[in-house]
Write a protein that binds this DNA or RNA. Structure first.
Lengths: 335, 335
DNA sequence: ATTAGCACTCGTTCACATCGAGTGCCAAGC
DNA sequence: GCTTGGCACTCGATGTGAACGAGTGCTAAT
């Protein structure tokens, strides 16, 4: 267990390191944070903290740098200090009422998070396995194409152009849509099963092309279980920790492959509210130098997440404030 | 005017520089390209070429580097050598028949271009001012939302969720859609005007919310006149010229703001077929170290472009081959 | 006109000395 | 028994100068 003073030293190291980015030495600490104690005393404490795994020295006779453990402690103690009821995960309802629709709200929020945090904002909707059908439409475009339009219960809109060999009239398509829309509110997995048998029985000569349509639809729901938006990445260029092209690359490659990021979000804790994932705590190894701050909010079939991804050495306080402000703003906009 | 040999020297310099990335000296040239002539001779030619603005020296007593003028000459002479009928701009029709629809085809093509060129692939559809309406639909989602769905003549699909204060029934919306779809094939600007007056007259108490819908629609067509897809950017990390974080940043910032890129594409020549824009020839100053290779194909209301963006010092030959291959592939896939 | 030769330029590289922030440890002091 | 000042030591960072070498411009010989 840590003594009172050890904790004080440790948090000071983290704080100073976040501010300066330089390995911090005992002198600095003594002068700036713990004015009462001399450098030598602090040196002793730091040696102990290093033994416990909270600090590391890049090389002998250099200042110390916090480990992930230290960040964890720092962040936890910060989260504790926040007003407890700080807005948990109840914001999802606001999103639904946003004037630009769900998509617009998420795009807007992720961009705003980028701006305010000066890192990278992101927003995601995860369709949990129990995604429910909102509505399906088939819209004839020309003799060999129709647009397959799916609106999920949560408000997510998906569409895909379908190329069919035979000419389906708009009437046929509408009839089909009417019959399928009876299943609105059912879970997609159920809908698909029912639909499949149903179509073979009822639609005779069109069965083939309709099956194709359903396969398309299934593909949409399989492949796009998470819809993901990221705000501007431009800020990353100004982050000192990413001046090294290698670190930059690691983060970038994760952000570019939506799949990777989606996996990360899926793995993330089930509980709603604000959470922080620091460095190696991320399941994705590329993110070992990054931290992710997330607020998630769930309904039965979906989990919606807003968050920021940035360097491990980020200004956590400011980012959390930014996130809070965006959630606030969302509430305003949807009134 | 350039003498035969000057041209030979110049093209050799460009070729060597593209391969090695190093400033090229007279010795190398003499040994590797113009075996007949001595280094001293070539030195004289190079001095002349420098005076004419085709070459520059980073500093006295260093090898020479080609200017944009030199690249221009190099690329033009290469394009001339290509089989003349190399596939002009007639590929647009294939895209339409692609099994994944227009969007799918473009996403696929841009990704493929990234892979094959090892730079960044991109694909864009520009709705020229004369964009024509394909079809409009209004789909009721719940008591206060409907989805506004627009399909343009070219196959581009746009949608936006609209929040209306009053509850519109699906019947009302369908009736509205039916009336508007009469205007299919008209230019959007016309449609909008007619629609506006039309709605005020006919729809009485719903006029307000419908106007809102039209504003939304108009916003879509204003703001998304170009639909743009870029392939993976990951390759950029391996390009030697972008190891410098500054150069990387310049290109990245352009790629991230779709608007900038769109402007570039808009400005680009009207003629169909393959074209190359080198360094400072780009209207966007950030791209002074980059080149863009484009193949465009137009129909009446749209221009579709496929291309690659990379460093000025790129392997033009290979990229053009890659582009050609993708266009070829597209033809296959749509058969 | 071409080319070999030569002096000169200038960025690059490497070794070496210096500097300084910071540590670990010890002995003195409260 | 903590705490603290002092001191020797470590090790990366910084700076300097010499040696290097690729490449040029010019000139004189062919």
């Amino acid at each position: 267990m840590l003594t009172e003073r050890q904790l004080e030293v440790l948090l000071s190291v983290v704080h100073e390191f976040i501010e300066s980015g330089e390995k911090v030495g005992s002198r600095t600490l003594s002068k700036r944070y713990l004015k009462g104690r001399s450098a030598a005393t602090i040196r002793n404490e730091m040696a102990d903290l290093e033994e416990m795994g909270y600090l590391v020295q890049p090389h002998t006779s250099a200042g110390r740098v916090p480990t992930t453990m230290a960040y964890r402690l720092f962040v936890d103690s910060m989260l504790q200090r926040l007003p407890k009821n700080e807005r948990g995960g109840a914001w999802i309802s606001h999103l639904r009422k946003h004037r630009d629709g769900l998509r617009g709200a998420l795009v807007h929020a992720s961009e705003m998070l980028s701006q305010l945090s000066s890192y990278v904002g992101m927003a995601a909707v995860i369709q949990l396995k129990q995604a429910r059908l909102g509505r399906i439409d088939f819209i004839r475009v020309d003799s060999s194409h129709f647009l397959l339009l799916v609106i999920l219960d949560g408000g997510v809109v998906l569409h895909r152009m379908v190329n069919v060999p035979c000419d389906l009239s708009q009437d046929t398509l509408e009839a089909l849509a009417r019959k399928i829309n009876v299943l609105a509110g059912y879970q997609w997995s159920e809908v698909r099963e029912i639909l499949y048998s149903y179509i073979v029985n009822e639609l005779g000569k069109y069965a083939d092309s309709c099956k194709r349509a359903i396969d398309e639809l299934d593909a949409i729901l399989e492949s796009e279980q998470t819809t993901l938006y990221t705000g501007s990445l431009a800020n990353l260029f100004d982050v000192p920790d990413f001046q090294d092209i290698g670190h930059f690359r690691a983060l970038f490659s994760v952000l570019e492959q939506e799949g990777e990021l989606a996996k990360l979000l899926m793995n993330y804790g089930q509980k709603d509210g604000i959470g922080v994932i620091i460095g190696e705590e991320n399941t994705v190894p590329e993110l070992k130098n990054c931290s992710v701050i997330l607020s998630s909010s769930s309904t039965e079939g979906t989990r919606t997440m807003l968050g920021v991804i940035g360097p491990k050495r980020m200004n956590y306080e400011r980012v959390i404030a930014a996130l809070d402000r965006v959630l606030n703003d969302m509430e305003e906009t949807s009134k």
